[in-house]
């Protein structure tokens, strides 16, 4: 039986945010002709090729600058990070290596890949969602609970 956390359930802001993410992916493919995959865009900056740096940097500046644009209009929503520093470092390494090895993350495979109905991205999404669920279960219930 699944217990729903009704107090923290925010379907409307989630849907609105999702539509914005979809619009960003839409504008990137329709204007730039590229897949809005965050890990791929960042990863490409680490092995820079000429003519391939500017747009990647511009995308990253927009993404990282979003909170700065936000605070001109409203107060930032909460960002709660429970994990300690050692866990953060391990998580970062795994996300960095895993997304490059698997050629994508939540944006490239999850949003763009599923929108393209790509079987490859469906497999990737099922894999990372799967280990995401299992890892949280192990940390919160098997070992931590």
């Amino acid at each position: 039986m699944i217990d729903i956390a009704w107090d923290s359930f925010t379907p409307w802001s989630a849907l609105l945010g999702g539509v914005l993410i979809g619009l960003a992916a839409a504008s990137f493919i329709l204007l730039n002709g590229r897949i809005a995959g965050i890990s791929g865009i960042l990863g490409g900056l680490l092995v820079p090729r000429s003519g391939d740096i500017g747009w990647r940097a511009a995308f990253m500046i927009g993404l990282i600058g979003a909170p700065a644009a936000w605070i001109m209009m409203a107060e930032l929503p909460p960002i709660q990070i429970e994990a300690g520093f050692p866990a953060i470092v391990i998580a970062g390494l795994m996300v960095g290596i895993g997304t490059r090895y698997g050629s994508g993350c939540t944006s490239g495979h999850g949003v763009c890949g599923l929108s393209r109905l790509s079987p490859r991205s469906l497999v990737a999404t099922l894999c990372f969602m799967g280990t995401g669920f299992v890892t949280v279960y192990l940390i919160r219930h098997a070992f931590g609970g």
Partner: peptide, 15 residues
Amino acid sequence: GSLMFGAGWGIAGFC
């Protein structure tokens, strides 16, 4: 790669 990414995602909640 995707399995590894998901485990890292689950540790900190960050993709």
